[in-house]
Simulated scan of single mutants.
Amino acid sequence: MSNQTKKQLKDISYSVLDLAPVKEIGEISDALHRSRDLAQHVEKLGYNRFWLAEHHNMPFIASSATSVVIGHVAAGTSTLRVGSGGVMLPNHSPLVIAEQFGTLESLFPGRIDLGLGRAPGTDQRTAFALRRGQGSMGQDFPDLLGELRSYFDPTLSQGTSPVRAVPGEGLDIPIWLLGSSLYSAQLAGELGLPYSFASHFSPKNTISALETYRSHFKPSKVLDEPYAMVGVNVIVADTDEEANFLATTLQQQFLNLIRNHEAPIQPPVEKLNASEYELAALHQQLATSIVGGPETVKRKMQEFLDETQADEMMVISSIYDHEKRKKSYKLLSDITKG
């Protein structure tokens, strides 16, 4: 790719993924209020969208009732697009999701995104509790997606369904497919939908997924050409040393997942207590994370953009201290605008 056509950091949009991180048992309310405060902060900085993710039975995440939290955040902002990153569709009736997001779009017109995943967002026992043994494990995701889309646009089902989503029907709510493998990449391309890849926890498949999406893309009523967003962990501080220290919160979070140890997010530490095997797994899972002072982050962000040619980046800054987390997004905003 020539220098004339290579994307620069200032050429693309930036968004935020939030999990309403919980610091201590019993402080869910504080976590949810911090999410709204962060959304208000990044809205002023010019970020494009603020997405919340559905996870269940995880004591460090408070965004399980994702549509409810989206309403909480949207009510506290005015221009920011707010959405799901994502709703795990096999956990739900498509009609219920259509009604929930139809309600959100009716309350906050032109500001709601519906990002969809096919994983359960939890362990198998919790998935069973969510689905009551009646749902799928994602194998019929295309059918669920088709049903959901037809509630917003009945022409997709030739108007044969006697069931209508009210609110929902006739509303233009952008639907994104989310993924950490090639499955959703291919499906999003074939349907002509925007696609978001979870490079922040599945870096190995990033490039192959983006290539799959773009090579399978077919123009649709939604998009004339592919639109790919990539999730990436970014932690910015005044110096590389401080950023690396702050990043140990994210590393401990992934170590806890590796160890099957459920705990709220942890404050940063000077040294990780981990085995060589755990450190290798950590490095593999967080391979695309971008951590450092402004100059380091600017260089690494440009390298990541050169590699992915993303149309948008969705940034996750897992920092324990709320004010330092806000500062990280401010420093990143300065970097990407300059």
Results as ranks from 00 to 15, higher is better:
260 N>S: 15
207 I>T: 12
219 P>S: 03
248 T>V: 14
267 P>S: 10
212 T>K: 10
260 N>E: 15
230 V>W: 08
223 L>I: 04
243 A>C: 09
239 T>Q: 13
220 S>K: 09
254 F>C: 01
208 S>F: 05
268 P>A: 00
270 E>I: 05
263 A>D: 07
210 L>W: 02
255 L>V: 04
211 E>V: 03
209 A>P: 02
214 R>S: 09
261 H>W: 10
220 S>M: 06
242 E>V: 06
230 V>F: 01
243 A>T: 00
249 T>V: 09
208 S>T: 01
194 P>V: 08
201 F>Q: 08
249 T>C: 11
223 L>Y: 02
231 G>T: 00
260 N>I: 10
204 K>D: 08
204 K>G: 13
255 L>Q: 04
215 S>I: 03
263 A>Y: 03
250 L>V: 10
221 K>F: 01
261 H>A: 13
230 V>P: 07
263 A>V: 03
222 V>W: 08
210 L>T: 11
251 Q>I: 02
235 I>K: 00
259 R>K: 15
209 A>K: 05
219 P>H: 02
247 A>P: 02
254 F>L: 14
224 D>G: 15
266 Q>M: 12
199 S>T: 11
258 I>K: 08
262 E>G: 09
215 S>Y: 07
234 V>I: 15
232 V>R: 14
229 M>E: 11
241 E>N: 09
234 V>E: 01
252 Q>G: 12
274 A>K: 03
219 P>R: 06
247 A>F: 07
275 S>M: 09
199 S>D: 15
195 Y>V: 13
261 H>Y: 14
211 E>Q: 14
209 A>H: 02
275 S>A: 11
246 L>I: 11
221 K>Y: 00
262 E>R: 14
243 A>P: 09
272 L>E: 05
220 S>H: 06
207 I>R: 05
265 I>H: 06
251 Q>P: 04
231 G>C: 12
200 H>L: 12
215 S>V: 04
201 F>I: 13
224 D>Y: 06
198 A>D: 11
265 I>G: 00
195 Y>F: 15
242 E>M: 05
269 V>P: 02
264 P>Y: 05
228 A>K: 06
224 D>A: 12
238 D>S: 05
212 T>R: 08
193 L>D: 00
205 N>G: 14
262 E>Y: 12
196 S>K: 01
200 H>T: 10
193 L>A: 04
262 E>S: 13
272 L>Q: 04
197 F>C: 01
267 P>V: 00
217 F>K: 09
228 A>R: 01
203 P>H: 01
217 F>P: 05
257 L>D: 14
257 L>T: 15
275 S>C: 08
252 Q>K: 05
235 I>W: 03
242 E>D: 05
212 T>H: 06
213 Y>K: 06
207 I>S: 05
202 S>W: 09
258 I>T: 11
264 P>F: 08
201 F>E: 11
275 S>Y: 10
273 N>R: 08
215 S>R: 13
212 T>I: 01
275 S>H: 07
254 F>S: 08
207 I>H: 05
234 V>Y: 02
227 Y>V: 05
232 V>T: 13
226 P>D: 03
206 T>F: 06
261 H>G: 09
242 E>A: 06
246 L>V: 04
209 A>L: 07
244 N>F: 13
218 K>L: 12
226 P>E: 03
203 P>W: 09
243 A>H: 07
262 E>W: 10
245 F>P: 00
203 P>C: 11
261 H>R: 14
235 I>R: 02
226 P>R: 10
248 T>P: 04
